[in-house]
Design a protein around this nucleic acid. Structure first.
Lengths: 227, 227
DNA sequence: ATCAGCTTATGATAATTATCATAAAAGGTT
DNA sequence: AACCTTTTATGATAATTATCATAAGCTGAT
């Protein structure tokens, strides 16, 4: 389908079946794609919320930072994930920042148009509500999952997270630094490194610089589950 | 206003200004109020989602429990808060349980009617989306707030939470056990008790059984902020 | 190429937190 | 009242995690 000027219009995918071609066209009329380089800010905490954004390619981190304190990563977003989630429907300003951890492209649609469409097309609104809820739920449940684990369980968990949700392979290049892993699962950088080293010594993983190869999946899963 | 058979219809409050009298009547047609005793299950993890529920009176805890593991309290809900939040728009079964920590009354509306109204009245849907988002956001941000603190900071935080969000007073009867506090802020029961004792010895609070009196608010706030 | 700055790595030590054990206090039941 | 169970309380100890220090490796900029 070629309802908009981008080659492959994934908007229909994003908002389910409840939008007509005309409505897609309407959304697309304000749709822009913005490329970012690794390390670029995509959203700055505190800035005004104008656009509804989802990720077209790359990988980004959503995080909170309060001056002196350490950053706390809330979640990673991969292609087709929403980038604007928290506060998007509940406030006027972002309560978090988003930064590209890999070169990324976002798709932006004016919030005013999303709102307008949701008001006029209840089915679209309901779909949106479902999608948004799914995202929030996942973040909440995942944070509980992480929190109940000890450090080695957390590291195992995030390795499996990358394997299963991002790369779908036993071997992958870590898309984030050890520091960012630490900020995500709530531990110190040193202990992330130490734990990875420990996994390596126990022949559970191999480490080639940024590349991780999971050698003993069962063991890693066991550690993730039972510590 | 007396659009429904309950004396004070708070539905308008719950769903903003975007619902007509007829629509309120429609929602009310399936609305029931259910009383629970302290300790009663209101929602059992895994059960089917039929109703949209909010709390009319009392206090409830939302929590996750997986067989052998310790319970993890996600959030407390006070009157006018939604009780069904997680998974309500994103799945068919509850991913968490809700239990009354005080005698409570819930208001239940059939999900099918909520859905139907959201589909036919986009403004209502959008209001709902805003309300739901606000709840999720608060849970996510609060969990980050708690997690970054050390134990004494967490206990200080939850005392201030009760003071500010539930009781609005420097003296209140703790509505939950030390164990439940521990399950909420992610520490052991012993350490919650120990920390409270420490606060008492430092004359920051007084403890009369279940009753807590905050004597040194500034100090407590300081501990909550900087440990 | 060289330097500065960041990431990764590892060890030693201190601080924090959990676990285990025990007992008093409180609440509920017969 | 007597009994049982749960909660609160406290201490001793073990386990976990953070902090501090140091150094090697990598990366980007001049």
């Amino acid at each position: 389908m070629d309802v908009c000027n981008c080659n492959i219009c994934e908007l229909k995918d994003m908002f389910f079946e409840n939008v007509s071609k005309d409505e897609i066209k309407y959304l697309c009329s304000s749709k822009v794609e913005i490329p970012y380089k690794k390390g670029d800010f995509i959203i700055e905490q505190g800035s005004a919320i104008d656009d509804f954004m989802y990720l077209k390619s790359g990988l980004v981190k959503l995080y909170i930072h309060n001056d002196d304190e350490r950053e706390q990563i809330i979640s990673f977003a991969k292609p087709k994930d929403f980038v604007s989630i928290l506060s998007i429907f509940s406030g006027n300003n972002y309560t978090y920042s988003v930064k590209a951890v890999q070169d990324s492209v976002t798709c932006n649609i004016k919030m005013s148009e999303i709102r307008h469409l949701a008001e006029t097309n209840g089915k679209f609104g309901l779909s949106l509500l479902q999608r948004m809820s799914k995202v929030s739920d996942k973040i909440i449940l995942e944070s509980l999952e992480v929190r109940k684990r000890k450090l080695n369980g957390r590291v195992a968990y995030i390795l499996l997270f990358f394997k299963e949700h991002i790369f779908n392979s036993n071997e992958f290049e870590l898309p984030v630094s050890r520091k960012e892993i630490a900020e995500y699962i709530g531990m110190t950088t040193e202990n992330v490194i130490r734990t990875l080293t420990e996994f390596r010594k126990d022949k559970i993983i191999k480490i080639y610089g940024k590349v991780i190869e999971i050698c003993n999946l069962e063991r890693l899963e066991s550690i993730s589950k039972h510590g």
